[in-house]
């Protein structure tokens, strides 16, 4: 293989990859404004350092992809505005959010929960058995 072939092949591959990405990141429905605000809250409080979304992020907290299928929105908002102590700490609390921020964040998590994720997070098999 020669220089020109390498350069041409690389350019074509980058173009094909970028095109495939753009056609693949379609949302199931337009993202509501409060969900967009919620994404900003998620990023502002650096939630990804401890929690995962789609399984990507920190490993000390639970995955939040479908949290609203396991908990009610009210429960989540109450948790965020009146944060409990994070075990194994005895004093250290989960970061607190303003009520408005908590509402936006739950909207975002609801939207994320509606994205088809090909089976993520997995259904526990052992529990069924």
């Amino acid at each position: 293989m020669r220089l020109r072939t390498f350069a041409l092949v690389s350019l074509l591959l980058v173009a094909a990859f970028t095109g495939a990405n753009i056609t693949s990141w379609k949302l199931p429905y337009p993202m509501p404004e409060d969900a967009q605000e919620g994404k900003a809250v998620w990023q502002k409080h650096n939630c990804v350092s401890c929690h995962t979304l789609f399984g990507n992020g920190g490993y000390v907290g639970d995955d939040m992809t479908n949290i609203l299928k396991r908990r009610t929105a009210e429960d989540v908002q109450h948790y965020l505005t009146n944060p409990p102590v994070m075990r194994p700490n005895r004093e250290h609390l989960h970061p607190a959010l303003e009520p408005g921020e908590a509402e936006f964040l739950t909207s975002y998590l609801r939207f994320v929960g509606d994205i088809p994720t090909l089976g993520w997070p997995p259904e526990p098999r052992g529990a069924k058995q």
């Binding site: 072939t5 591959l13 994720t117 993520w120």
Partner: peptide, 20 residues
Amino acid sequence: AALTVAAGLFGTGHHYYWIG
């Protein structure tokens, strides 16, 4: 190098499994 570009680029696909 060409194989690296092809595999490195589209191998990123394994990070796309569960993100929608």
